[in-house]
Amino acid sequence: MTIGTDHAPLFADVLFWMLAVGSVLAGWRVFRADSMVRAAYWLLASFAGTAGILLLLHARFLGLILLLMMAGEMTIMAAFMVMFMMNPAGLNPMNMVHQHRTAIIAGVGAFLGLAAVGVFGEFPARPLLDASQVTADLGVELLGDSMMVFETAGVALLATMIGSIALAAHRGRFGPADEGSEPPALVPEAETVRPGDSRDEEQS
C-alpha cells in the first residue's frame, strides 16, 4: 500500500526510505558519538526522521509537535551534556559503556522480537481513507470525549514540574541538598540526626 493521496506514490516512498534509514542511522550514531553534545543532536536528527514519517502518515499535528518538543528538549539536553560531559568537544574517543555484550544481546533481541511481531502479527486492515479531517478530528476528540485523558496528562505535567523543581532545588527538606542525609540512629529512642542539626551542633 502506498501512502499519501496528495503526494506522488514514488516520491512518498523514496522520502519514506530516506527518513526511515536516516532515523535509524542517526539513532545508532547517538551511542557512537565521541561527544555527548553531538549525541544529543544525533538524537534530535533521529526524532526529526520519525517526525517526517509521521507527517507522511498524515499525522500532521503529531509530527510537528514531536519536532517542536524534541527541538526544545534536545537543546536543554545539550546544555546538560555540557554540564556533565567528561570529554569536551569530543576530541578523544569516548567509550563509556558497561555490560556491553548483554546490552547488545538485549537490543538485538528486542529488535528481532518486535520486528517478528510486526512482520508475522495480523493487524486489521482498516487504513485511514480521508486525511483531510485528521487534525480537526483530533481537536474535537481532545476537547470532547477524551477530555479527561487530556486533562490528566496536563495535571501530570504540572505535578512533574513541581516535583522536578522540588528535586532539583538546592534547599532540600532537611537542609541543603549537597550535604546529603545522615543515616538514622540505630537505637529506637535516639533522636534522628539531621544534617542541619549536626551542623548547628558543630558550630556551637
Binding site: 539513532g27 545508532w28 551511542f31 556533565f84 537490543g107 520486528a115
Partner: peptide, 28 residues
C-alpha cells in the same frame, strides 16, 4: 511503505534504545 516495514523500523529504534539504556554509564 507498508505497516510491516514501519513496525520493523520502529522495532529497530526501540532495539537501539534498549542497547543504549543498558550499555551507557552516564545517567544522561
Amino acid at each position: 511503505m507498508s505497516l510491516e516495514i514501519l513496525l520493523v523500523v520502529a522495532a529497530a529504534l526501540f532495539g537501539i534504545g534498549v542497547y543504549g539504556a543498558l550499555s551507557q554509564q552516564s545517567f544522561v
